[in-house]
Design a protein around this nucleic acid. Structure first.
Length: 491
RNA sequence: CGGGAUGUAGCGUAGUCCGGUCAUCGCGCCUGGUUUGGGACCAGGAGGUCGCAAGUUCGAAUCUUGCCAUCCCGACCA
């Protein structure tokens, strides 16, 4: 088992402040539990955003934007929703400051108290459904397939860099449909989009499933999720897609007239992924040398470092690199040529390893003579000398290989740490020592789930989709069970 | 919100028990030179409200009280 990655994200923050001070992934800001995403980290997020956005549009969705502030009254219309979020909301009560008459700084102007408090959105279901009410009258207005890129705030009692920050960036899709079947189809479709994105782009294998009632989103009928295993064997919920039934339509009175002339409430879904995915990326692939980024999301896929003694040598290398760079860029490969004279080659090598650049090309006088370059890959740290001839195809192929290797490596880790368990003793042993995922029988009751959680810290991550049906007995209660469910300790 | 710890230069730190040449060291930064195929070396230099406030004292980074912030463990967590 790899070293405990609980704090690996924190480690990175430390490295960046300590060693690579100028180009960082992120650091804790002065604001409680919030995160500053520095340019290099943001470039990764932008690549993720661009691909997700494309996938949403390919499935018929459009983007829109709704207000940051939600009147308190909206928020309380769906009972279970308020139960789920009430304890972690930032509330705006005043709209003005004034100079402190007793000297010193500024104070809140008590005369500027809001008639009704505003909640800083922890998620946008309520304000969006309040808006949808005015947009939907007929079956002709459906389906309504909208996504929002936004920030949300959840005043968590305890925050954790990347994984649970007080403010985070995400996208939230909110759709309205004429039938339950169509809404469920949408929920599952978006779960597939997330799973595809995680596996094909982030190189993170995921298990698709549904949550137990205990773990369900506040206000949902059914919550679907993708669960990933981090290097330390802990689970991370990487994305969720909710079938909301008619709960929000009823709470906000969103009705439509069907073809048959009958009035009915619309059916809803919502789905989201967040900057938590950046945490997943770090915790899945990185090693003790720093970040390891999958080529498809890396801001720079290739970095070229010149090695030279004289200006004349550098000039000749510059010319050769311009040629190589052009060929690579013609293949849509993102290349950075770092010929800064202010840092030495060894320094640059280390720097780009921290940053997780998948491929490094070094070129010096020796290479000019031999028409070669030194190619190093970040994932295995192997180096080889290649002829420049046809370099663009070689690199293109190498990037694909790295992408595949990262996925396979992560998948292998999951396979190695996946346990099938039939007794509670063994279950306790594994959760206490080895960690990893456990497939075990469960009697289906929230009470058993709760007891297991209290005794072992492990929770039911999901009931996998297309789960194999087999007769067994619950490891805890001994009652009959029809299938195994996925247990793990989670972030 | 409970338990624990921490706060000293951009980053990481020594010193706090036992108050007094005590503001230490490393990295980074600046200047000059030599270097450059895995985080170079030499010489010189800049940089500090010791988290904030009050108190004790001839004297406080050090002791006392209060506050603030951060981290860890819990509770909580779409």
């Amino acid at each position: 088992m790899a070293k405990d990655l609980v704090t690996r994200a924190q480690d990175y923050s430390k490295w960046y402040n300590d060693i690579v001070t100028k180009a960082d992934l992120a650091e804790n800001s002065a604001v409680r539990g919030c995160m500053v995403i520095k340019p290099y980290g943001y470039a990764i997020w932008e690549n993720m955003q661009a691909q997700l956005d494309k996938m949403f549009k390919d499935t018929g969705h459009v983007n829109a934007y709704f207000p940051l502030f939600i009147p308190k009254s909206f928020f309380s219309k769906e009972a279970s929703h308020v139960d789920g979020f009430a304890k972690e909301c930032a509330v705006v009560t005043h709209y003005r400051l004034k100079n402190d008459p007793n000297g010193g700084g500024v104070i809140v102007d008590e005369d500027a108290k809001l008639e009704e408090e505003l909640i800083v959105r922890p998620t946008s279901e309520t304000i969006i459904w309040n808006t949808y009410k005015g947009w939907i009258q007929s079956y002709r207005d459906l389906p309504l397939l909208i996504n929002q890129w936004a920030n949300v705030v959840r005043w968590e009692m305890r925050t954790r860099l990347f994984l649970r920050t007080a403010e985070f960036l995400w996208q939230e899709g909110h759709t309205a449909h004429a039938t339950a079947e169509e809404a469920i189809e949408e929920t599952e479709k978006m779960l597939d989009v997330y799973a595809d994105f995680a596996e094909k782009w982030m190189a993170i294998p995921v298990i698709k499933g549904i949550k137990t009632p205990n773990e369900r989103f506040a206000g949902a009928i059914e919550t679907y999720c993708i669960e990933a295993m981090m290097q330390d064997g802990k689970a991370l919920q990487a994305g969720t897609s909710h079938f909301l039934g008619q709960n929000f339509a009823k709470a906000f009175d969103v009705k439509f007239t069907g073809k048959d002339g009958k009035l009915d409430y619309v059916w809803a879904t919502s789905w989201g992924v967040s900057t938590r995915l950046m945490g997943a990326l770090i915790m899945t692939h990185s090693d003790d040398e720093g970040l390891v980024l999958p080529p498809k999301l890396a801001p720079h896929q290739v970095v070229i470092v010149p090695i030279y003694k004289t200006d004349d040598e550098l000039n000749r290398i510059n010319e050769k690199v311009a040629e190589i760079k052009q060929k690579l860029e013609a293949k849509n490969i993102r290349v950075k040529y770092d010929n800064r004279d202010t840092q030495r080659p060894g320094w640059k090598f280390a720097e780009y390893e921290f940053k997780g650049v998948p491929v490094r090309i070094a070129i010096g006088a020796r290479d000019l003579e031999n028409n070669s370059v030194e190619v190093a890959r970040r994932d295995t740290r192997e180096k080889e000398t290649l002829q420049i001839t046809d370099i663009e195809n070689k690199i293109e192929h190498l990037l694909e290989k790295i992408q595949d290797n990262l996925f396979n490596r992560a998948l292998q880790n999951r396979v190695d740490n996946m346990h099938q368990v039939d007794t509670y003793d063994e279950f306790k042993k594994i959760t206490a020592k080895e960690g990893g995922f456990i497939m075990a029988h469960w009697d289906g009751t929230p009470e058993t789930e709760q007891k297991i959680k209290e005794e072992t810290k492990a929770t039911i991550r999901c009931i996998p989709l297309n789960n194999k049906q087999e007769d067994g007995v619950c490891i805890y209660s001994g009652k009959p069970s029809k299938q195994r469910v996925l247990f793990a300790k989670a972030y």
